[in-house]
Design a protein around this nucleic acid. Structure first.
Lengths: 173, 173
DNA sequence: GCAAATTATGAGGTATACCACTAATATTAT
DNA sequence: ATAATATTAGTGGTATACCTCATAATTTGC
């Protein structure tokens, strides 16, 4: 099945706008997609009691090893102070370890604990499921284009807000 | 300019994944898009001191007239208790009016005040700008397809967004 | 060498977003 | 008629997400 023509797209859009005028607003659709993905993620991984952001943070630590908190924030595109809230929650569950840098005593270095590594591994299949299910309703041949479009939008606007994330190579995540 | 071929899409995707492995995760991209749109919305409309959700709620009231709070929640795809938090904030600014239904004394009916209507009108151009800028980086001929894809995903998973974990038995509805 | 600027982190505040529980009212089932 | 159930709304709790301000440590400018 090919990607639909402009005429088909526009006809479908007209019908959708009739169902709800909110469908004409990208921001509304993005908010709903965010809710939906979060819901899928939590239901897939509920036995582990980990949120999407917590998982992203731990993934970044697995890929980059020990890091200071600002670098963590840049790796996952999250505001510095939000990261400072997430880390203690994971630390109290002994999924992370923290220590003061001896070179720069302002810096707190964070790394994954063995327990954290093990948890990431156990969760990975379920997490992949959650991401897959998020875009499952699109015809397969459209999914990659959709991903690419989201990437374009994120990269084009990465500078906005206080949580730009670092684009240059970041290993695995 | 036509929509790119599958080969072109896949080549671009490979390059993007090399820039950041997080780009392979729909959930990550959606979270970033949500941050980006929120940032655009707030910077476009900062003189009015209204959030995207507050604007959606007021828009629903403009479209539907007086409603009970549950209906408002369903209109904008927001959890009932979140709506119950947003409404008092708008009410205290006299943008909404609330009264008890005489027919069913449990129900609180909400509607836009004149002040609320005027504010919506004054904001509308800026809000449109925020939504436009969110998808501006896509080639024009791809924007409608992108919108339609988001609509498909939202409609296909609409049952998940409002209350994840609520009804373990159904799976539909 | 030392004040000034910068940087890393944290604390307090506001606003979604959701869950679990409660209170009040309405509906139903017997 | 009234006890059981359902519905509407609110409260308190947790977790993003971001802002402003504060604190401590480093770097810089002179």
């Amino acid at each position: 099945m090919p990607i639909p023509s402009h005429d088909e797209i526009n006809a479908e859009l007209e019908k959708a706008f009739a169902r709800s005028p909110l469908f004409a607003r990208p921001g509304f659709l993005i908010r709903r997609l965010h809710q939906i993905h979060t819901s899928l993620f939590l239901s897939e991984t509920n036995e582990f009691n980990i949120t999407p952001v917590q998982f992203s943070l731990m993934s970044a630590l697995r890929a980059n090893g020990e890091m200071d908190q600002n670098s963590v924030a840049q790796e996952i595109g999250l505001e510095r102070t939000s990261v400072a809230e997430v880390i203690p929650r994971l630390e109290s569950r002994e999924l992370l370890e923290r220590r003061r840098s001896t070179k720069d005593r302002r810096v707190k270095l964070v790394k994954l604990s063995r327990k954290g590594q093990a948890l990431l591994k156990k969760m990975s299949e379920r997490v992949q499921q959650a991401h897959d299910r998020t875009v499952e309703a699109l015809p397969e041949e459209e999914r990659n284009l959709f991903l690419l479009q989201m990437i374009r939008l994120v990269e084009a606007n990465n500078h906005l807000g206080n949580a730009p994330f670092k684009l240059p190579d970041s290993g695995d995540a």
